[in-house]
Design a protein around this nucleic acid. Structure first.
Lengths: 152, 152
DNA sequence: GATAATATTGGCAGAATCTGCCAATAGGGG
DNA sequence: CCCCTATTGGCAGATTCTGCCAATATTATC
């Protein structure tokens, strides 16, 4: 992976629907090697996919919550079961394993506070082995970027 | 916005590079009305853009940190200044305003712990009006989804 | 329930883009 | 300096895009 690849990655992070033609001009290549590089980055898993970035409020999703979860036990099986459950719940968009007592941090999206309450009662509390949850709500977004730092 | 629009949004969240042809087949439309709907969703700001999803470790970015920030003062000017600074720092990918004492939650990406330390000392601590910061590291990813819930 | 007004659709065609192949070029090692 | 390998640019057939128009579906009004 050389600097051309980084440039390509950078441009596609900024606009994932760039035509190969336009992309090739921006990184100073002709279309065919450019396309070959893109395909390669996809094949190698450097580019994991492409997604439309959607405005949540426009879809009536105005609540973003961050939820800290701690587990009762940390056996391999409990953990696996917990993580499988998380992956199956659509309202949970992201889930990270955090340092400090094997917690998880979830990012959850819901239409409103009421729906979020229901999500916690009907979905999250049904997940086995959860010891405690602690919700914080986001009531504003300052920044959301898809452009990773450093490799210029 | 009707159910066809929701379907389109759904498909483009799953694959942002879908050709209009393929997309139109998936949502049972012919290409031209399909494209018109997509353009409209873009114009209305429902679709805010498209992005390549990149594997961070492949770019040598293996540290994800969540940082809680509290401000010393909460005047309009302090807040604005703080938020502007945040937006200018590349390592900070996301920044949410959180409930409970006007905190912020940042998601930060760095190559390693050392770089993260340097980021905190050289960048974050230079931002005015920060009273305290509290970092939690993600050492695993269970789930990351670009597909918003509900509107089936 | 019929009719008119409006919005949305499907098809078409010229323009643009994609994409696999091949010869030419650039870069590295002996 | 030459050879070997990797990468590039150009080409061409196939595909896709995209704006326009007539046809169809939807909605409002009476």
């Amino acid at each position: 992976m050389d600097s051309k690849d980084f440039q390509i990655i950078r441009e596609l992070q900024k606009d994932g629907r760039l035509s190969n033609q336009e992309l090739s001009e921006r990184v100073n290549l002709s279309p065919s090697p450019c396309l070959r590089r893109v395909r390669n980055l996809e094949k190698e898993g450097v580019i994991r996919g492409y997604a439309a970035i959607v405005d949540e409020p426009s879809l009536g999703l105005s609540v973003t919550a961050f939820v800290r979860v701690t587990l009762e036990r940390h056996t391999e099986e409990t953990t696996r079961e917990f993580e499988d459950s998380i992956r199956r719940i659509d309202e949970i968009l992201d889930c990270y394993v955090m340092t400090g007592g094997s917690d998880y941090l979830l990012r959850v999206i819901a239409p409103d506070l009421q729906s979020y309450e229901r999500f916690v009662r009907e979905r999250l509390h049904k997940v086995k082995a959860i010891a405690s949850i602690d919700t914080g709500f986001a009531y504003g977004v300052v920044k959301r970027s898809t452009l990773l730092p450093y490799p210029v």
